[in-house]
């Protein structure tokens, strides 16, 4: 973070949307009259994410909110996830999650251009590939979302 240095991967990661969204999430809160709700917790660090959502007649996410208590990566990941999955159905969300996890695991270089296009805002987390111990911070909201989409509220 020395100001004079070229931005490192962590600094780029935190600058790109993450700090802003962590400080003032756009999708924070709970959906009134939700038809799905789920939680994810990471006992190792204490981070928690609760997701609530409402679907339209075709099963697409019409409204989604999250209540997140965690690090900047976790809160921003929950918020950008909420924005990205709005309008998608469970199948499309599953594909998006797989693509997101593959990008964290393999890095941006190994992610195809069409895949990057589909990930959209989520590309902000590409540099987490360099920080293996932090990847679960970004995937925790997706566990909560899967639980919210499951009939029994469990992932």
């Amino acid at each position: 973070m020395p100001e004079a240095d070229a931005p490192s991967s962590a600094e780029a990661l935190y600058r790109a949307l993450v700090v802003g969204r962590a400080r003032t999430p756009v999708f924070a809160g709970a959906v009134e009259g939700a038809d799905g709700a789920g939680e994810g917790a990471n006992p190792l660090c204490g981070d928690r994410v609760a997701v609530s959502l409402r679907r339209d007649a075709e099963g697409r996410v019409a409204e989604i909110r999250h209540e997140s208590d965690g690090c900047a990566i976790c809160v921003a990941a929950a918020d950008l996830m909420a924005e990205t999955v709005s309008g998608l159905d469970a199948v499309a969300i599953g594909a998006l999650r797989s693509g997101f996890e593959a990008m964290l695991r393999d890095g941006a270089a190994a992610t195809s251009a069409p895949q990057r296009d589909r990930l959209g805002l989520l590309n902000a987390f590409a540099d987490l590939h360099e920080y293996k111990s932090r990847r679960k911070c970004a995937t925790l909201p997706w566990s909560a979302l899967s639980a919210a989409l499951a009939p029994d509220g469990k992932e």
Binding site: M1, S9, A10, Y14, C71, A72, I73, Y131, R134
Partner: peptide, 15 residues
């Protein structure tokens, strides 16, 4: 204040 310990650790690690 305002910073999670894990974010601090990652940004320190970068240095």
């Amino acid at each position: 204040a305002g910073a999670h310990a894990h974010d601090i650790a990652t940004l320190l690690d970068q240095n």
